[in-house]
Each structure stands twice: as structure tokens, then as C-alpha cells.
Design a protein around this nucleic acid. Structure first.
Lengths: 114, 114
DNA sequence: GCGCCATAGTACGGTTGACGATATATATCG
DNA sequence: CGATATATATCGTCAACCGTACTATGGCGC
């Protein structure tokens, strides 16, 4: 699962959102780092719906514009929790390895003391 | 940056490795989760070398087989550290959002107390 | 009134990166 | 002699993301 997909699921975990709301929510969640493009978003929405990770919550018409709200399904929540755990482990592994880079000869014992 | 690429850089952070060694190191680092395919690995190695994130450390000939050892460059280490930080933030964001899913009406105050 | 911006969704072409399959070669083990 | 492990390389394909453009409406300032 890639970053945009992960953040879309993350945004939907708290509450149902429509497409444009997602763009802003994802920007917020990532401190402005990730700005979803329309092509990325709507493609991902279709794909995730097909995979059953998200579902259409409801549709509203506001000022002549259609708004489709999506919600995270139970299997989507499980997939997201899995992926979050995976990211945490990978980040921890990278940080451990980077510390070893700075102290190449350091033994496990010396590392434990430090 | 995607998962295989991230794990290749992670594996190289501690010490230089050659291609086949990387396949095993990445499997170890990810608890057997990620098994790099040859196609993925050598493609990524070429790409990362071109981007300057890794460098050829040395070449050895063992039993008539060539072994090319790669090492993480300084800019590769910086990129990896950046990405690790990013993954940690995303994982934390997902976990926070998933907690909100279970307690949809919970105020910030109630959340802080809990 | 007109242009600009925010909102909202749709459509499409291009690129990247990962993947599976396959090929090549040697050494070791049974 | 065949299977397995080591080791690198190439090819075609596909999923996912990206940029961009387009259609529409409503509010704001000039």
C-alpha cells in the first residue's frame, strides 16, 4: 500500500468524508506534506471501493454539486491497522540501522549500555 | 519511496552488502514479510545508484562469480532518515484516527483524560 | 459585470517502480 | 546426475500515482 492510499484510509478512519474533503484532511494529517491530486484521489477511491476497504456512506446534493461520502469498512480498518503496525516496525528498523552506521564496530553489549 | 526501496536503504545503512546478501537482509529486517525478487532488486540498485543514494563499495570475485557490494551514501542516509521519520508520523496519525473511530463522540478533553 | 478563487467531480495520458518469469553460471550436497 | 544455494541480469507487464485539463456553481472584491 502506498502513501496516498494509506492517508486516504487514515482520513476516513475518524469519520466519513467526500472527495474534496479528503484532499484537505490528508493535507492536514501529513502537515501539508501530501497534497492529493484529483487523479490520484478518485482513482484510489474507485480501487478501494472495489477492494471493499471503503464504502459509499451517502450521497448529498449541495448547490447543484454531488457529494459522495465514503466511510472506512471493517476490513479497511483492519488493513489500515496492519499497515500502520508495519510502518512503525519499518521506521524502527531504519533508525536502528542508521545508529549502527554511526557506530560500526559497536558490539551488542556496548550498544545495550549506551 | 516504496517499501522495497526503503528496506534496501535500511539494510545498507549498517554495512555494505551485495545483491544476494540484500535479499536475505531485507527478509530478516522485515521478519520475513518482504522477500525481494531479483527483478525488483537489481532494478532498484541501478535506480538508486543513478540517484546517488547508494554507491558501489567494491567488487569481489568469489568462485568465478562477481560480487558487487553497495554502500549507503551520505545523501542516501539523509533520505532514509527523512523517510523513517515520515513513516513514524504516518503510523502515529493512523493509530490516532483509528482510536477516534471507536470513540466517535469523544471530545478532546475526554480523550486527554483517557 | 467580470475575474478570481474555493468547491466538487470527471477524464486521460504519461511515468515510475515493482513484479513474475526466465536465463546464465558455479559450487555443493545427496 | 539432479536438486539446491549462490549470484546477477533482462524482459514484459501492470498497478498506482501524477499532471493536466475540463465542467460547474457560488462567493468575493473591484
Amino acid at each position: 500500500m502506498q502513501e496516498p492510499t494509506f492517508l486516504i484510509l487514515t482520513a476516513l478512519a475518524a469519520q466519513p468524508l467526500h472527495g474534496y474533503g479528503l484532499i484537505q484532511s490528508v493535507a492536514d494529517l501529513s502537515d501539508g506534506d501530501v497534497r492529493l491530486r484529483a487523479g490520484t484521489l478518485y482513482g484510489a477511491l474507485d480501487r478501494l471501493t472495489g477492494q471493499g476497504l471503503i464504502e459509499i456512506d451517502r450521497s448529498e446534493e449541495v448547490d447543484g454539486r454531488l457529494r459522495r461520502y465514503y466511510r472506512l469498512s471493517d476490513s479497511g480498518a483492519a488493513a489500515l491497522a496492519d499497515q500502520a503496525e508495519r510502518l512503525r516496525r519499518h521506521a524502527a528498523a531504519a533508525e536502528t540501522q542508521l545508529r549502527r552506521r554511526l557506530a560500526p564496530g559497536m558490539s551488542a553489549l556496548a550498544e545495550a549500555v549506551a
